[in-house]
């Protein structure tokens, strides 16, 4: 199957991602590409099960870019420091799937940012697998948003402009435009640098679920740092 770029959406699957770097374990993640918006038409190529490939792979519109391989780099970096190699989560099954229950323009959207955001007046996070959650009012003033996170080095720009990692202004715009129906009254944050996957599963994820259910959100945007 040759796939050509058109203005319509292309969904390529099942796939192995190519053109990023073949060394990355890709499982069956597939990429969705679209030429007519800011979805990238050429950066990544999906190999179909039969060995097909996207036509853009042979004639890329831009120079190939090497994606950063964080899992490999961090594993090697910690090893060089004498730490036990970190065992990253690797899903062994297809993800669960829940279709949007209503049109986006009628949906109530929740937001979670793992950047360690808190509002002025709330308690900051600590650095040792802090699994607590903060609910910031959705109408919080941007200048009252603060951050604390074990990887403070990634927060230089968010501390200047929180929208880099907690897109409050942009979500308000999309709500005002009618793209999304409404925003939950509060946006959620946590300090996502929790190394214990057990504690993420048993503490963070259920607490987020409970909050989103109480907010009666129809869907949730999760912004990773």
């Amino acid at each position: 199957m040759m796939v050509s770029l058109t203005k319509s959406t292309m969904i390529l699957r099942p796939g192995r991602v190519r053109g990023l770097d073949n060394a990355v374990p890709t499982h069956s993640a597939s990429l969705l590409l679209q030429a007519s918006s800011n979805l990238c038409p050429c950066r990544a190529v999906v190999m179909g099960g039969s060995g097909s490939e996207c036509g853009s792979f042979k004639q890329p519109l831009q120079a190939p870019i090497m994606n950063v391989h964080y899992m490999q780099a961090i594993r090697a970096r910690y090893e060089s420091l004498g730490y036990t190699p970190y065992r990253w989560f690797e899903a062994d099954g297809a993800p669960p799937w829940q279709p949007l229950p209503k049109p986006l323009a009628e949906a109530r959207l929740g937001l979670l940012s793992t950047s360690g955001a808190y509002a002025l007046g709330q308690v900051a996070y600590h650095y040792k697998d802090d699994t607590s959650i903060r609910a910031l009012p959705s109408n919080v003033a941007i200048e009252d948003v603060r951050f604390s996170h074990i990887t403070e080095n990634y927060l230089v720009d968010p501390k200047r402009d929180p929208n880099c990692i907690l897109p409050l202004t942009q979500l308000r715009t999309l709500r005002d435009e009618g793209v999304v129906g409404e925003l939950a009254d509060e946006v959620l944050s946590c300090m996502g640098g929790v190394y214990s996957q057990r504690r993420v599963r048993e503490e963070v994820a259920p607490a987020i679920l409970e909050k989103f259910k109480a907010q009666r959100v129809d869907c949730a945007l999760l912004v990773a740092m």
């Binding site: 964080y70 990253w88 989560f89 899903a91 993800p95 669960p96 799937w97 829940q98 279709p99 949007l100 229950p101 929740g110 979670l112 793992t114 950047s115 074990i150 990887t151 946590c190 996502g192 640098g193 929790v194 190394y195 996957q197 993420v200 599963r201 963070v204 994820a205 259920p206 987020i208 679920l209 989103f212 259910k213 959100v217 129809d218 869907c219 949730a220 945007l221 999760l222 912004v223 990773a224 740092m225």
Partner: peptide, 23 residues
Amino acid sequence: MCHQTVCLVARHLEAHGIPTMCV
């Protein structure tokens, strides 16, 4: 690490009925 956390949280939310989008 945060990306791993959102993967785990997204899978949990989705399994309990909430559609998710990770960025």
